[in-house]
Structures are given as structure tokens and as C-alpha cells.
Amino acid sequence: MWFWRAFSGNQRYHHSQGDAVDSHPHDIRIVEKSQTTTASMHLIGEEPLSIRIQGAPYAVVMRTPGDEKAHVAGFCLGEGIVDAPGDITNIAFCDGEDTNVVTVTLTADRRRRIADHLDRRTYISQTSCGICGKSIVADLVQALTPLTDAEALDGNAARERLLGLGELQPLRRQTRAAHAAAIYDPGLNLLSIAEDVGRHNALDKAIGQIFLDNRLPRAGLLTLSSRISYELVQKAARARIPVILAVSRPTALAVELATALNITLASLGKGDSLNVYCHAGRLVWPG
């Protein structure tokens, strides 16, 4: 039994700013043995997003269109461009609502504080290849303050939130190609959920949604559909989220960084168990 799928040139596209789901229906041919049938398949959208700071180009990321302002706000927090919503005077599209360019305007005080950062652009996520893991951890621990101990979470309930992440992903159900990030308060009430073709983008969007309306200090748990890389730990540290649960295992560097920054990391194990890699005391297991 084998099959082969090919995309035809027939395509329809629909996207309006802020849509929760961005997918593109394509006509395809499905060939199984000697039988050929036709069908329509939804593919996840992906377009460049140009992020400008004070009118100057800063970064271009590939992402699934939608939730751009939250995405850019979360990106700026993760990059160290802002520390608080009040550092931003405006986030705007450069040409109306249907655009792939977003510009951020900072307060005069914030511009002065990060002038060197914007000139050098040497934050860890921007560095070139060749830097070693120990240097990354050392530099980030200096740039990021380790988290203080937080209220312990019910481990069983937290695991259930992770197992239920797919139920919050309409784009994944439609395309089978979207990552997700969901943030909960210490009572495990949902604060934000975002999907994107990129796991970093999904996290930036989820963080940005609650950063802009000053709800980020309530964050107690982050669940991820992906593995945990050090960049995602870095973003969680900037957002002061103390516990990260993910479907897949973390990298060794992610565990090293989370250990240094006092962040709890765990992922799904066999039989829906949790593997806890560091700071296990934040998860309790009621009998």
C-alpha cells in the first residue's frame, strides 16, 4: 500500500487581518496504487512579517498571518526591546490593515535605554553561528533575572491542560501543520492561546496578547505543542512564566538555561506521564 500526493495549480486564497485561522485550500491528486482521486486540502498560511523599530528595519520573520500586533509586542518583549507595555507608544501597520509590515514606536526614555542594543543588535537570539552553549547560558543569565519561586501547580491538572492543547487549535485541525502556545494563570484558567507555523511565533503571539493589556503578570503556566528549545525558555523568562510543559522533550541547552533561570520544564512521557527536568517542586501531585 502506498500513495502519492501532488498539488495542482488551482488555488484560492482568503485572509483578512486578525483571522484566527489562516489556511489555503488547494486541489490535490491522491494516487493510491493505480487509483487516482481528487480532493481539497487546507495548507497553513506563511508570509514574511517585517518588524520595524522607530521606522528602521529590525527583523523579518516568517509566520502565519494574523494577530500581528500581539506577535510584534511579544517579539519585542522577548528581544529585550521593551520591558513593559508602557515602553510602547504605538504599534501600527505601515499601510492599512492588510500588510506584512508593522512598526513599533517607543517612548523617548525607552529609546535612550536601549540605544546600544538597537545599534549592535547583539541579543542572544540575533547572534551568529559558532557561539557555544556555555556562553549562551552565561550571557542570558546576566541579561535575564532568574525567576523567584512561584505558587506550586497541581501537576495532574497542568498535564491535562497540555493534553488538551490540540482542542484549542482550529488551525492544526484544518492543516495538521500549526504549532501552538497556551498560557494559564496559577489557577490554570486560560489567559491566551495562539497558533502559527513557527513555534517561536506562536509563543510571541500568546505572550503579546496578554502583555499589551497588562495581564502577563498573572501567567503561571505555559504549554507548547513543540519541543522546548533554549529560545523558548528565553522568551518565557522575559515574560516571567515559571512553568513550561511541552509535548516533546527539551534540548540539553534548554534544561541548562531553565535550571539557571529557576524555570520548571516538563514534557509528556510514556502513558501521558510527565518527565520533569528541573525545579520539580513547582508541580505537586495531590493524592
Rank of each mutant, 00 (worst) to 15 (best):
Q35Y: 13
L168F: 13
K69Q: 07
T223E: 10
C278V: 12
A56S: 14
I30H: 03
A252G: 06
L222T: 02
R112Y: 03
A266K: 10
A6L: 10
A59C: 03
Y277N: 02
R120H: 11
H71L: 15
A150W: 05
L106D: 09
V255S: 14
L265V: 09
S23N: 08
L232P: 01
A177Y: 02
L171Q: 09
S135Y: 11
F211N: 01
I114R: 13
A236Q: 08
K134Y: 04
A150G: 05
I51G: 04
L171W: 00
L147Q: 10
I30N: 07
A202K: 05
A59W: 01
S229A: 12
Q234G: 02
I124P: 04
Y184E: 05
W4I: 01
Q142H: 11
R120L: 13
L224R: 00
G74R: 08
T38Q: 13
A56W: 11
A73K: 02
T264G: 09
T89Y: 04
A138S: 15
S125Q: 10
C278E: 08
L77D: 03
E167L: 15
A20S: 06
P57W: 01
A280Q: 13
A254K: 06
G78K: 05
E68V: 04
G287L: 08
G281T: 10
A237I: 06
L224N: 00
R176K: 13
A236V: 09
D83I: 03
Q54L: 12
G45E: 10
R215S: 09
R238K: 14
D204V: 03
W4Q: 08
R199P: 00
I88W: 05
R110Q: 15
G80K: 07
T105E: 13
I183E: 05
T148R: 07
L77T: 06
Q209P: 00
L147T: 04
I53L: 07
D19G: 04
G86N: 09
G9C: 00
R52D: 11
A70C: 10
I44P: 00
L153I: 08
I81H: 12
L232C: 02
L140F: 09
S23D: 12
G187Y: 06
A236E: 09
I210T: 05
E160H: 13
V233Q: 05
H26F: 06
E195T: 15
R238P: 01
T122H: 15
S50K: 13
E79C: 04
E160D: 15
L168T: 08
N100Y: 11
I241Y: 11
S248F: 12
I124T: 14
A181C: 11
R161E: 08
T99D: 14
G220P: 05
T223L: 14
P146M: 10
Q209L: 07
E160P: 01
I44R: 07
A59D: 14
L168W: 10
M62Q: 14
A177P: 00
Y58T: 03
L163A: 12
D149K: 12
T175D: 12
V255N: 12
D87F: 12
V243P: 00
T37Q: 05
A158D: 07
P65H: 01
R172G: 01
N156K: 10
D139A: 15
E68H: 13
C132A: 07
K270Q: 11
C94P: 00
T259E: 14
A178R: 00
I207K: 03
L203C: 02
L212W: 03
G155Q: 02
L268Q: 11
A56P: 03
A252V: 08
Y123W: 06
A158R: 09
I136T: 12
G208H: 04
R227M: 05
P170I: 01
P217S: 09
A180W: 05
